[in-house]
């Protein structure tokens, strides 16, 4: 029956496990263990200076040295989607993260992306990263050879991701999304930002091909995002919730909300759940968050977490 292992299936399973463990051990929480005790699960810093908010948010959860070892080659994933206000990660947040990593002893800090350099320049992200001592490396979004097939053993819909090869040249990943609205699944944050590492061609499979926007399309998209998250584990997520769009997302332009917050932590489900509440969404109604929780990626119930909220 289903349990019978043939030579062929053994090799196939071995290949799948081997490839997935390669990625999992490349960015494991084992190498950079989750800080425990006394430090909050999530730190939220509110203030007019977004650079300072970022520094303080990371400081509250143990400082960057907790996450970035000496000599580490760090890669950072930001969102440069569009220069529309509130539709991209703030350059101040990106600059602060770069500086903190270098100060912690990182040998290099590289922002990787398949978005064109033009987008990074238009948003001011490229300039901010370079000024802080980091660098930007982009790949041609249509060149599939720039992406490595990665099996998704726990994937319910997504069985194989195509991850940017550049990710594998680094020791750890820091995810710095901007949280905002999304016309389809109503929310974007840490989980959805990881689509920025997956090839656009593979991302296209997250959306149904018939362009019909029914409930099943949203479930398909959100399950795929949650599946992708099972094979990529950022060591730290820092969410830009300083200024973001709450209508017409993810592209904008849309109605702007300015909570002036930077939110940091390692539990991406908890971070996304927290961000949902910033504009009155119930995280339990966001399919992607529920699916991520079902995958065991984090906590959806914030009441059990230690959340530090400060105003500077």
């Amino acid at each position: 029956m289903g349990g019978k292992i043939t030579r062929r299936s053994f090799i196939k399973r071995g290949a799948v496990l081997g490839a997935s463990s390669l990625l999992l051990t490349k960015f494991p929480e084992k190498i950079h263990p989750k800080p425990v005790l006394k430090i909050p699960d999530i730190s939220v810093v509110t203030g007019n200076d977004y650079y300072k908010n970022t520094i303080e948010a990371v400081s509250k959860i143990g400082g960057m040295k907790k996450y970035v070892g000496k000599g580490a080659k760090v890669t950072v994933l930001a969102n440069p989607q569009r220069p529309n206000p509130g539709a991209f990660t703030s350059p101040l947040v990106a600059g602060a993260v770069t500086e903190m990593c270098l100060n912690a002893g990182a040998s290099s800090v590289t922002f990787i992306s398949w978005m064109p350099v033009k987008a990074w320049e238009a948003t001011g992200l490229k300039q901010a990263v370079e000024k802080a001592g980091g660098k930007l490396e982009t790949v041609d979004l249509r060149d599939e050879s720039m992406f490595r097939p990665v099996p998704v053993p726990e994937g319910k819909i997504l069985k194989e991701a195509k991850i940017m090869k550049k990710l594998f040249e680094h020791d750890l990943l820091i995810n710095i999304p901007v949280t905002k609205d999304h016309i389809g699944n109503k929310f974007t944050g840490t989980m959805k930002n990881l689509m920025g590492l997956n090839s656009p061609k593979n991302n296209r499979t997250f959306h149904k091909s018939d362009w019909k926007t029914n409930r099943n399309s949203i479930i398909h998209l959100d399950q795929s995002i949650a599946d992708l998250n099972t094979v990529i584990t950022p060591v730290l997520s820092i969410v830009d919730a300083t200024e973001f769009i709450i209508t017409n997302g993810p592209f904008g332009p849309g109605k702007l909300l300015k909570p002036k917050k930077v939110i940091a932590g390692t539990d991406r489900i908890a971070l996304d759940s927290y961000c949902c509440k910033l504009w009155g969404l119930n995280p339990g109604n966001i399919v992607m968050i529920k699916k991520g929780f079902e995958h065991g990626l984090g906590s959806i119930d914030l009441s059990h977490l230690n959340i530090s909220e400060i105003l500077i």
């Binding site: 989607q81 569009r82 979004l141 999304h182 016309i183 389809g184 699944n185 974007t188 959805k192 689509m195 656009p200 991302n203 296209r204 959306h207 149904k208 362009w211 019909k212 926007t213 399309s217 998209l221 017409n248 997302g249 993810p250 592209f251």
Partner: peptide
Amino acid sequence: FLYINGGADIYHE
């Protein structure tokens, strides 16, 4: 989808 990523479905509809 390359231009506005996630928001494209509704435009197509």
